[in-house]
């Protein structure tokens, strides 16, 4: 019975109208709306020159805890052609907005704890000396390497004349003795229109955002710099095809020999409005 009530709660969601960030790697200052739950399915396809084609997956549940705090749980997995499909771990992400009102530059702090194994191919960020050949190694060799790591990001985001400009500085630390690894992401985007057409169409300009992002590694604390790092340039498109559902697509093109030639990312997002308060009411009424 409770399961039925929960399901009805999921599908009785009110329409959500907020635009979501179109980027895959870069974060901006937009937080999940308080009480809303976002369900996101993310995939990345890659084909290393010296290895098998792979698909990395992530299932994400993101919740808006307060106006300044969003929290997300990720479950990661991957399939590699001619090898296997494996679960590769989980992550817990938290983002904290630092200033209560809008400013020229809006800082957000990001903290993530990840418990993943060496076969992880979700590539949600590129740090340190992450290069194409990492994804060419066989699953059975990489899977036994269990990694626990923390990741910190400083997210800076600005809005001007309808454009969003975001910069991320990334630092990642494996909890064993490996050094800090660094990376960056930079994105620019804009919706095609800000005025609703009023006809409720899916293909209207206001439902589409276009942008471009670039991201890559900056070495580690023992060898900081661009040597043995990979970098990408990726156009992004985001389409809100229903009032509470969104699809994103981004082909990312490698900028040097250490990078994949192309990484194709896509995701589908469904947002449940006021999930937390509805759930609380459900259990309060029991």
């Amino acid at each position: 019975m409770r399961l039925l009530l929960l399901l009805s709660l999921l599908f009785s969601a009110l329409p959500a109208v907020a635009q979501h960030r179109p980027y895959f790697v870069t974060y901006n200052d937009e937080m999940e709306e308080v009480g809303n739950l976002e369900i996101n399915s993310y995939s990345v396809l890659g084909s290393p020159r010296s290895g098998n084609t792979f698909a990395g997956y992530q299932a994400e549940l993101e919740y808006g805890a307060t106006g300044w705090w969003s929290s997300a749980l990720y479950l990661d997995g991957q399939s590699t052609a001619n090898e296997s499909t494996v679960f590769t771990g989980y992550r817990w992400e938290n983002r904290f907005r630092l200033l209560p009102t809008q400013h020229l530059v809006n800082p957000v702090l990001y903290f993530e704890f990840a418990h993943i194994n060496g076969a992880n191919k979700s590539l949600r960020e590129i740090v340190g000396h992450d290069v194409e050949k990492d994804q060419a190694e066989a699953n059975q060799l990489r899977r036994p390497e269990v990694e626990k790591e923390v990741e910190l990001k400083l997210i800076l985001s600005s809005h001007a004349k309808g454009w969003n400009v975001s910069e991320n500085f990334i630092a990642e630390k494996p909890l064993h003795n490996d050094p800090w690894e660094f990376g960056y992401a930079f994105g620019v985007s804009r919706p095609l229109s800000f005025v609703p057409s009023g006809s409720g169409c899916s293909f209207c300009k206001e439902n589409i955002q276009l942008g471009v992002e670039t991201y890559g590694g900056l070495g580690d604390s023992s060898q900081f710099g661009l040597r043995d790092t990979s970098h990408y340039l990726a156009p992004v498109i985001s389409w809100r095809f229903a009032q509470n559902a969104n699809a994103r697509l981004s082909p990312g093109f490698g900028l040097n020999d250490q990078s994949h030639r192309m990484l194709l990312r896509f995701s589908f997002t469904y947002e449940i409005e006021q999930f937390g308060p509805k759930l609380a009411r459900l259990f309060r009424s029991r």
Binding site: Q19, M31, E33, V34, T66, G67, W68, R97, P100, T101, Q102, H159, K161, G162, N164, F194, V195
Partner: peptide, 20 residues
């Protein structure tokens, strides 16, 4: 509308150009 204030539950709409 421009600044918002998350302490009061009001998001910023600075992403929308000034004219609108």
């Amino acid at each position: 509308i421009e600044k918002g204030d998350f302490r009061r539950g009001m998001p910023s709409f600075a992403r929308i150009p000034e004219k609108y």
